[in-house]
Every structure is written in C-alpha cells, then in structure tokens.
Write a protein that binds this DNA or RNA. Structure first.
Lengths: 266, 266
DNA sequence: CGACGAATTGATTGCAGTCAAGCGACGTGG
DNA sequence: CCACGTCGCTTGACTGCAATCAATTCGTCG
C-alpha cells in the first residue's frame, strides 16, 4: 500500500529489499552480447525498430553492453544524468517516484522493447524526474546516448518513429490522468489491466488469454493510487464478474470486451 | 463539478455554452498577421523559439493565418486530424477529454506560447485523443503541419528544443499523476497553482505576486478530479492559511514557499 | 516443517462526493 | 431604473468509497 500518512514515517516499506537492490545496483553484471540484433524480439518494438529493419548492422556496432538486473534493482536513478540508454530485453521494469515519507507512485510499467532513460537521447544534461527499477529479473541492452541520438535522428522514418514514441508516452500518461480523475477504482484497475494485457499480447508475451504477470498487488496499488487492501477487493470483484483473474503470477483475461466496458463505465 | 454519476445523465452540463461554442468554432475569424514575429512574446516560448531567435524571417513566411477564438470554442477536435498547428498567442486554452455521460477531465491548461495539435508535426495521420478549447478569448497563429515539421527538425538546436518540449509534456502529465495518486486535494491543488503561477511568471504574465486567472472553480475541479464544492472548500483552506487567493479572476500568491511546502506535504 | 512474503478479510475512520440551498455580481430588457 | 435571470461562489447536511489498522490465511521456498 505504501501510503503511510499520519505518524512520523517509520522505516520506508521494503527497506530491506530496496537497500539490497541499491547496493547490487551499483554494479550490474556485464554479459556477452546476443547473437543477432536483427532477430531481437525486443528490438522490433523499440525506438530504433525502423533502423533495425533496414540496417541492423548499425545497431550491432552501437550496443555497448548488455546488463542483468535483479528484482527491484535500480536501473536509472532519479536526477542522475544517465550514462546509458537501455532497451529492456527481457523481464519487467517500472518507473517510480518515491516520496520522503515512504509513499511512492509508479508512473508506468516497462516491458521488453521499452526504452529506459530516453531523455538522455534528447539532451545530455537532462535528468529524469523518476527512478527506474527492475520489477523482475531483467536484461537490458545499453547504448551510449550520443550514439543513439545520431541513430534516432538519422533518417525521417526513424525520427518520426521516435517522436511518435514520445507522443504516445504522453498519451499514455494522460490516459492514467483520466483514470485517476474521473474513474473509480474498478474502472481504473480494469483500464490498466486492459492496457497491460494488450501490450503483452503485442509483444507476443501472451498465450491465448493468459500471460505472466509479475506485479504484486502492492505494485498495482502504487500505480493506481490505491491501497493493497482495496486493490485486493477490486480484483476480487473483477474475478467474481468473470472478467480477469490474477493468480500465481498469471494474468488470465476471460472477457476482454467486458473488461473494456467495465473500464469505461466506472 | 461535472461528475454526474448516478441517474441517467440529463443534459450535459453547460450544454448551451458548449453548443454555441461548437457552432461558432466551425468558422473562426481570420485576421491580419502581427507586425513582427521576432518581437512576439509568445513565440519566444514556443517550440520554434530557437529559429525565431536566429532566423525570424523563416517564420514570417510560414505563418498561414491568425485566428481568434471565443470562450469554450473548439480549437482542435478529438480524433480530427489537424489541418493546422497553432501557437497560442494570447489568452488561455485547455486540453480536455469528454465522457459520454458528461464527466470531463482537463489534461492541461495552455498559455501563450504553447503549441496546439503538436502531434500533427510528428505524423500527418495522428489524431489527438483529446479536444482543445479556448478558455478565454484567445488568438492563435496557424501553421501548416508539414512546413512546421521541416522547420522544427531543420537544425540540431531546434530539434532538441522540440524533443525536450515533448519530454517536458510527459513530465508534466506525470507530475499530475503523482498528484492524483499520492496527494490529497490540498496538496494537488497547491501543486497545480504553483505550476500555473510559475508558468505565468515565466511568460511575463504575472505582476509581482499576482496574475490574471480565468479558470473557474469548475475548471480546476475538472483538472483535479474533484467537485466544485470541494475545490471551493480547499481553496478556502489555502486562503485562510495565507498562501494564495483567487478572487475576481485574479490569482494572488502570498506565500510561494509555503504553497510549495503544502504541495509536497499533502 | 517453519518462516516469510503475499493475499485476503474485517472493523473503523475520514476525505471527498452528492444534493440542495442561498448569496452576490452582472447584464438585459421592460 | 429596477426586476429578473444567469452565472459563479459559498455553505451545510448527509452519504459513500476507499484509507487505515489489524488479523488471519495462503503459498512458496529454505
């Protein structure tokens, strides 16, 4: 739940997890590169997908290192100018704003193909107003910002692809805003699950109507501005209505249309 | 308040205003261009500010028409591909998502210098998932998307300026998300007022600690996901604490630091 | 099996929504 | 010039969703 309002904040929640992650985060393990960027499923959904399609050799040269992160390990820290821009290759991550009193707000979940620290592409001195952490074990391909910067603006197709990515990010954030502002818990949870499931399916990470789903109820709560207790109740409502269920780290969508309808009606 | 949940929705609120605006919106009045783009205060804050500084003549050629909009008139409609990209020159506007049942969510307020329908620059077929309306009487400079597109990517400085604008938009939206998710009414209202006042001051639209402030309490409510009644109560609290007051369309910030503190603490 | 993290459930509280009424400023038309 | 209507702001009474606090159960993994 991570709300923690009234009394002087005790230990931030999950201090142990977070601390361990921070320490480990200092030195992520380097690893051998993958065989072929052109065959990379994550790359096909990345900000450089057009280049990958037409000139995959450009990327093989650029990629600096592949890194492996453990659950809750920091990938990019709030207000640190990023040395690397990453493409998430496997696993989940999330962007989060942490409050001094222990509250936290998850801005979005990141899936394979998503870019981490994209602001470094646009301006070397830009520091992100959020932290990125791995949600599960994850691997990511690191690039030097200035090189990716050249690549991403190299041709018109690639440049448009990238700017559309930025616009889509704004649009996503603003869908969350409408969820928060004018929807109830049931509606915004349904909406979030629809978006996540759709994204997973687009990446080939869903089998039929099911997909691996690592976020805990606490993570959903911190993304939706609710408490774990209430996420739990709301999730049960959705399950009882036969729309979705999340169990044992598996998301099962039994009625996507119904879930969409629940999202807009609540 | 525009929440309208339980009974079958009656007339959408402000039907008269909205309708009148829609009709009038079909034919905004053209008007003579302004004397000098280089001297334009709005331009200096726009997405093409760098070009304006170095080669103002490029813009004089591009500008197609200046338009005038009345309060609540539609400037760009949801899911209509935009013929024009506008720079707001005078007055306020807002981006809004309207629900079928009358609820609405204001995504952001637009001030002089802000861009309207920027997505048309990135992709001709892109249609915005929101509607833009004038809040007050407003004037805007219209440009053909493909021409602005060339201009905006013409040189590296200008291109970086534009992509940073897009990133800043996402960051703004995500500040609203943290407001919604992890702040109470008092905190998010304070935060919004801080941001608006800061923006007004940056544009030279504030005299000392005061500025014209056209949004109604209903508009603030629809931006914050609250009801007018509650915005009123919250505003009174802020006023009683000697932080800000909004009266007769004037915003007065009596204690900016205190307001900022209220924003982060609540 | 025991321990820990996560999910579930319940009791209570409080912030904000809803509904309704009243006030003041302003503009318009008889 | 005043009556009236409109619009936005203010206030109060009541309600309800979700937060908070607190157990308890479930699952997984040493």
């Amino acid at each position: 739940m991570t709300r923690l309002r009234s009394p002087p904040p005790p230990e931030p929640l999950r201090a142990h997890r977070a601390l361990a992650a921070d320490v480990a985060g200092a030195e992520p393990l380097p690893e051998a590169g993958c065989a072929d960027c052109a065959a990379c499923a994550a790359g096909a959904l990345s900000i450089y997908a057009p280049t990958l399609a037409h000139a995959p050799e450009k990327l093989r040269v650029l990629r600096q290192r592949k890194r492996r992160f453990g659950p809750h390990q920091v990938i990019a820290r709030h207000s640190d100018p990023a040395d690397f821009v990453y493409t998430l290759e496997t696993g989940w991550a999330y962007r989060v704003v942490q409050f001094p009193d222990g509250r936290r707000q998850i801005l979005s979940f990141l899936l394979p193909g998503d870019t981490i620290a994209a602001e470094a592409i646009c301006a070397a001195d830009y520091s992100a107003p959020y932290t990125v952490r791995a949600l599960t074990h994850a691997t990511a391909c690191g690039f030097r910002p200035h090189q990716l910067r050249e690549l991403v603006f190299a041709c018109e197709t690639q440049r448009d692809h990238f700017t559309r990515y930025l616009l889509e990010q704004r649009a996503y954030a603003e869908r969350r805003i409408t969820d928060f502002g004018r929807r109830r818990a049931l509606g915004s949870l349904a909406h979030l699950l629809v978006e996540l499931f759709t994204a997973l399916r687009a990446r080939g990470l869903a089998q039929d109507n099911a997909a691996d789903f690592p976020p805990r109820q606490e993570d959903l709560a911190d993304a939706l501005g609710l408490t774990t207790a209430h996420v739990n109740r709301t999730l049960l409502t959705l399950r009882r209505r036969g729309l979705v269920s999340i169990q044992n780290g598996k998301l099962r969508v039994h009625d996507l249309a119904g879930l969409r309808k629940t999202a807009v009606d609540n």
